[in-house]
Amino acid sequence: MGVVWVLGARAMPMWERETPGPGWLPFAFGAVLIALSLAAGVQALLSPSPAPEAPGAFRKPLLVLGATLAAVLGLEPIGFVASVFLLLLALFVLAERKKLLPSLLAAAGVSAALHLIFVTWLAVPLPAGPFGS
């Protein structure tokens, strides 16, 4: 339950920076937030500690988060379709250890469908990248 503290602490300095007038309410929010976080932290410390986590419970979510981050990084240089295609392929093959062919098909299908929905139908200018039309 250390995260209670991490979350609380991360929120704290952000909200304490006060500007007069418009800053009053954010300051009040910040103060209340700190007080409540402290209370939640105390509550977490007082309650019996949960069963220890299985090791590696964080690995896969972090992997998925990292892959998503990489895909967002890739949006502008290589375009939405290519970036999402690679993201899906990586998740299917590397994270889920699926067979290559169905993964390729699924990744291609989903990225094509999203392109159709958003770019063709809704006319949203998703980043096209060097391969874009």
Binding site: F80, L91, F92, E96, V110
Partner: peptide, 18 residues
């Protein structure tokens, strides 16, 4: 679920960007 969540992520990116 392993077939579902990667497309969900892709949809999240597209939805938020658009």
């Amino acid at each position: 679920y392993s077939w579902l969540y990667p497309p969900i992520i892709a949809l999240c990116i597209a939805g938020v960007y658009s």
